[in-house]
Amino acid sequence: MKKATIFFMLALLATVSVSAQKYITKNGYIRFFSSTPVEDIEAHNRQVNSALDQKTGDFVFKVLMKSFQFEKALMQEHFNENYVESDKFPNATFSGKVKNLGDIDFTKNGVYQTTVEGDLTIKGVTKKVSEKGSFEVKDGKVIGKSTFNILLADYGIKIPNTVANNISKTIQIDVEVNLEKLAK
């Protein structure tokens, strides 16, 4: 966890120190969704820190696991205590780069399809990911969106046999960040 935090801080530092133009938000949104024939489970987090460096393409976000809100209180308890162990691993982070940064014209409104590659860390386990998404430039703001899937087992998240039919092994993650220019 300590390594992940240091890495995230270094990534942030790099993002901000090199660039002339940064876009940030402290109210990014992440939803995860599990669907099985037995039940659908989803959780929402609207306090996500995220930054995009227009010059380097560095893109990072950081999520507090305890900020995920579930419809059912019991599921929220199980999520924090048993599945992601949020006392031990309070954060999930992504640190990576927009691969085709040159395709985005930050001066022109429009939706630009992108691929973001980097390290996704959940429950202290870091995996390389490469996901498609879009950045919409709109009146000086940038709205980043992506939907992708992760395998719980990849991040050491074990589902007990008693609820194995209720929780999907693959979870859909939706990310939406409304980034604004960092005023300096």
Partner: peptide, 12 residues
């Protein structure tokens, strides 16, 4: 209190 994200303490 749900934690600290390197910039802010988050309260829900």
């Amino acid at each position: 209190c749900t934690g600290y994200n390197e910039t802010d303490v988050i309260m829900e």
